[in-house]
Amino acid sequence: MDVLTVKNLHKQFGTFTAVNNVSFSIGEGEIVGLLGPNGAGKTTTIQMLLSLMSPTSGSIAFFGKSFFSHHEEILQRINTSSGYARLPWRLTVWENLNVYAYMYKVANRKEKIYSLSDRFEVLDLLPKKFQDLSAGQMTRILLVKAFLNDPEVLLLDEPTASLDPDIAEKIRNFILEERSRRNMSMLITSHNMSEVEEMCDRVVFLNHGKVFAVDTPAGLAHRNDKAELSLMIKDGLKRLVKSAIRDNFSYVEKNRFITITIPESKIAPFLLDIGKQGIEYDEIEITRPSLENFFLSVSKGAV
């Protein structure tokens, strides 16, 4: 069963179309990445999914119920966090979390706040004022807030932005554990492509407000099959360049190093060919097509 169904979502600001007939769904226990270059419509879409912005047209349904007619019931069952959101800065962390625990009618408020704070390693921050926290600490507190009501669907906008790599990894692990434990579903935007590849079952790729592609992270990565073959040549650099030109592969050459952009499927025959020609190399590095390559290709309009 789909926990979120978005149909023909459209948002118009005057003559500018921010979101153009976007449709997608999220299944129970599924983690979906919402990706796209800046201005693609990701944040606008998430804001409409949180009722912070009303759509111009289209429909949103959570748990099979219309968001517009079951607004409070649905918002009680979902939650959100953003790497850029803030909480009232004069209040202490404890006070802020206590307010939202009341808001979501959390049972055993104190225990819940302490146990989540422990999981996110922010127990020592509870007595501190929100204004005295670093950006990374604020992000973690907002994640604690997001888990207060044990959401069935979590909408995360850049959740690990401004976090140290070790903390970001712990948070990713926690989120994946919660998914396994409670079958929680999630929509996540991130500029960290390796994070998306690690966490997401599917990616909805937006570009210029439209759904450009929907696929698994690996599926999207392989839509652009260009790999990069980097070699440090010991002998035969001129012959290697000739071979690249012959096969219409673009290349960048610097001193004894050469990087050739080549379809992944042609790497093996190419290496075999240069081996036959007696071209010798000391180092080799192959960068396979990745989600990041796909992202960059779409941003540059190459796909």
């Binding site: 804001q47 009722s51 912070l52 409070e72 019931e73 959100t80 004069r90 939202y100």
Partner: peptide, 18 residues
């Protein structure tokens, strides 16, 4: 104004608060 200054309006109205 306090909600606007502390950028809290988004947190409030993405909760079930009416």
């Amino acid at each position: 104004l306090e909600e606007l200054w502390s950028e809290n309006l988004g947190n409030l109205f993405s909760s079930p608060l009416t």
